[in-house]
Each structure stands twice: as structure tokens, then as C-alpha cells.
Design a binder for these strands. Structure first.
Lengths: 248, 248
DNA sequence: CACAGCAGTTGCACACCATGCAACGGAAGG
DNA sequence: CCTTCCGTTGCATGGTGTGCAACTGCTGTG
């Protein structure tokens, strides 16, 4: 689109801040966005006005501000699956002791929209807003498998082609749950189940994750029954919800 | 400012979505922002491109999208007090059974940046990104009281003037904790303690909240000791953190 | 102490593009 | 079928965002 260049550039600036580099100087922003130094400076100033970025006088670095957290609060409050899942997550965490996450699909990634930390001393940590590739995580593959089964374009959602992925997704669709053993994060194992919406489409999943040495295959199989039941309960609650406010 | 009008307008559009009205039509956005219908339409289209808003084809309404959640994930990851508080929150929740929240000040409001649900069947719910006025909540008053004691401009932060607030803040500063009994939300009681940063300035607080009938004054006083200790521990951890952040 | 190097901001002129208007197409309701 | 309201889209124009380059302020160095 040739419309609203400056707005797109501003969003590009916002996206220049990552978990790996949460605080940047003007020139760093300019480098990462391929924008002129002066443009970056002016856009950052404008974003600062709006409270979307902060400016640390000490280090001279900019970072994302409270404004985006506020907006996210509104966004999270109206995600249906989140509301439907909340009541079930605690029970799941209590029953298994592991971390529970609910993710939704966005393009080729899964984004955490709700999570409940496990009760054990060592546990997998997650946080709201965290992004993971669909193709290499349990939750992501649970979603992809459902897409495959429904004839949706799962390849586009997978992004890069992974050899043998189609077969694995078929097996996941048959089993109803997806396992992951240190595929995405070293030392972390997970099992996930898809959450269909009213129409049967799937762009959300619920996952249990924990340390790979403790949360091994037998444990995960044991937890799978409870997990699938919870996913089903969430889907039912989701179906009972009134406004069809989701999807795009 | 006469600079970057369209960017400010776009942010205005984003802020038109609230917890009370999370999904709006084009004309509703135009009304709430005093923008032309066509302008609102085009800005929403641009924001849709960037994934900051979603569009429900069914209802024709726009709402905030995953993009803002992504950005918030990055923003939350680099809020120091959040990182410092996380390890202490669970212990606090376990010891008291009530909901633990960490908030930071933004203007005249307190924004929840971390929370740990209580362990009881009935409990107070909070969520990340939730906003509350400083002047009428325990956590907010804990912050205001510290500002008062330090000679900061607490009146500006309080917003509307509340009769007798100065005296109450003085008492809170003396006690070290702030109590709240259904002042902001009916049926909810809370107790909060301020979290000073390295320089002694306070713009964060940790709060315990629960149902007013159970979490009564004696219970809150009982929990206050643990709460203050936790706040102190968080502040210590915060002080140990590196002021600057390295870049790659 | 001077100088070089770098980061960030700002004046300026021009091209670009965001805006308001009005007209159009479409859906919903009478 | 007509009316009404909503959302989108050509179009002309005035506003404004942008690149360039000069300037300031800071840091480290010989």
C-alpha cells in the first residue's frame, strides 16, 4: 500500500524493539528499520508524545512504553478464547503441576494470550505476548494439524517447509494432541491440544509445558487426557459465548 | 504539535477502543475521535495492514489486534520492577491465598504489569494492562503517599482533588502500607506497599486484594508484615539490577 | 587543550500524501 | 421499491513528512 507511509514507518519503529533488544538508541532504530536517522528521531519523538515509547535519560535509549501495555489490556480483555480458558487453566495447572499456556495463531506464529505458571519448583516460564513459530512447537503443531485436517492452507501458516511435517501433522490430528521434546527450546517438553471455535475452525490451542527430564513422554501421556478434556471444555464455553466477535 | 498529525490520529483511533467498548464500527470510531468518517476508515485500514487492529467480517466491527499484544510482550519484558517482583509474588500469593498485583504509575493511573492469582475459590481478579486511578486504590495511594513524603507533585498525579486525601496519604506514609475497603471496586479490599527504586523514588507498588468480607482489616494487618517484607525484597533486587542494558 | 569522531537534533525546500468532500455501492428495514 | 445508514473510493488541494546537510554537544584520545 502506498497509503499512510508514516504510520507504517512508525509501526516499523515499534517493531524494531524486540525481546533480545528491548532498548535502542536513535541510530540503532534507524539501522534496523532502514529509515533516515532524522526520520527515526522524529518518529520516536512523536511516539514519545503518545506514550507508546519511553526515553531513558540516563542511557539515552528508547524502549516500548506503558501505552502499548494499556492497549494490550483492552485487546486481551476481548479475546474470547482467553475468557473461556481462564476458568479451566488453574485446574489444569493444579492437576499436572506444569505450566499451562493458551496461544492463538497470528500468521506463522503462536502468541501467548493467557498462562498459568506451574506449581513445581522448576518449571517452564512463559509470558503473555510471547511469540513462537507454529511449525516447531506443540501448540503450534496442534493448530497446524487441525488446519491440515480441515483443508486449510497450513503450509502458508507453517512458513518454511519442514521435511516430513505433513505426516507428523497427520499423526497429531489422529491422536488429538501434539508432543514436543526440546524441538523449540532446549530442556523443555510440551503437549498441546487444539481449541476449535463454534465453526470448527482452529486458531487456538492449550499447552502444558515443563522441564524435559521430568515431563517425559509417560507423564505427558498421562496428562493428555486431562488436557484434551480441558480443551474440549474451553471450546464448549467458547461456543456458549454470545457475540461472534472473533476471526477476521 | 503540528508534527505527525496522522500518527497521533492513528493512536487516537487505537485509544478509542476501551474495555467498555472493545469493538467499534468505522462511524463509532469517527464519532469518538472526532475524525472524518473517511479518515477513520483509512486509518483503520492502515492499522489493519499492520495487524494492530482486527476486523470481524461478521459484525463489521474493528477491535484491537494481536499486534498490540506482541508489542506489550516486549514492553513487559523490559520493565525492571516486573522482573524483580516475579520471584516474590508467588510466595506472597501462597502465604496469603490472595491475589498479588504489581502496578506502576502512568500519569494519574496505576497499570497492572504483573499479577499472581490467589489460591482461594473466591478471589479478586486482575489482569495485565488493567488501569485504575491512583487516588482511590490501595496501590495507587501507596505510591501517592510516597510522592507526598518526598515532596513530589502528588496532587497532579492524583488528578481530581479528594477532600482529606493529603491527611490520609500522610497516615499511609507513616504506616508504610495503604488499605482500601471497597473504595474502588465494590466487594474488594486491598492492602498495598510502595516499591522504591534505586534513587528512592516510587512509581511502583505491590498489592494484595481479595473479597472484602474475608480479607478484612485484621487479615490485612496480618498480611501487611509479609507484604512489606516482599516489597522491600523486590526493591533490593531492583537495586541490584544493572541500570543500563547492553545491545548487540 | 585541541581535535576527531559519533550521536542526536533542526532549518529548509520540495515532493508527496493524507484529508475533506461528495458521490457511489451495498445492506438492512419499512 | 424506496429510504436510510454505513463504508469505501476518485479527486483536487493544502498540509506535512522527508532527505539532506549543517549544527550542537559529548566522549575519548593524542
Amino acid at each position: 500500500m502506498a497509503t499512510h507511509q508514516s504510520l507504517h514507518r512508525a509501526v516499523t519503529v515499534l517493531r524494531a524493539f524486540t525481546e533480545a533488544e528491548p532498548a535502542l538508541t536513535v541510530t540503532e532504530v534507524a539501522d534496523r528499520t532502514n529509515l533516515h536517522k532524522s526520520t527515526a528521531s522524529r518518529l520516536l519523538a512523536a511516539l514519545l508524545d503518545d506514550g507508546l515509547v519511553r526515553h531513558d535519560r540516563g542511557t539515552g535509549r528508547y524502549s516500548l512504553g506503558m501505552g502499548v501495555v494499556e492497549l494490550a489490556g483492552v485487546a486481551l480483555g476481548q479475546i474470547d478464547v482467553r475468557g473461556a480458558a481462564m476458568p479451566h487453566m488453574e485446574a489444569l495447572a493444579a492437576a499436572t503441576g506444569e505450566t499451562v499456556s493458551v496461544v492463538v495463531r497470528r500468521g506463522t506464529e503462536a502468541i501467548t494470550v493467557a498462562h498459568q505458571p506451574g506449581t513445581r519448583a522448576t518449571r517452564h516460564v512463559a509470558w503473555i505476548g510471547r511469540r513462537m513459530p507454529l511449525r516447531s512447537t506443540a501448540a503450534g503443531r496442534a493448530i497446524l494439524a487441525s488446519m491440515l485436517r480441515r483443508g486449510d492452507d497450513w503450509r502458508a501458516a507453517a512458513g518454511t517447509d519442514v521435511p516430513g511435517l505433513a505426516e507428523r501433522l497427520g499423526a497429531i490430528a489422529d491422536a488429538g494432541v501434539a508432543h514436543e521434546d526440546e524441538a523449540f527450546e532446549a530442556g523443555v517438553a510440551a503437549v498441546a491440544a487444539p481449541i476449535p471455535d463454534r465453526t470448527g475452525a482452529v486458531d487456538a490451542a492449550v499447552a502444558l509445558s515443563g522441564p524435559a527430564d521430568r515431563f517425559d513422554r509417560p507423564r505427558r501421556d498421562e496428562a493428555a487426557t486431562t488436557l484434551v478434556a480441558a480443551a474440549s471444555a474451553i471450546a464448549t464455553d467458547l461456543g456458549l459465548r454470545e457475540p461472534a466477535r472473533d476471526v477476521a
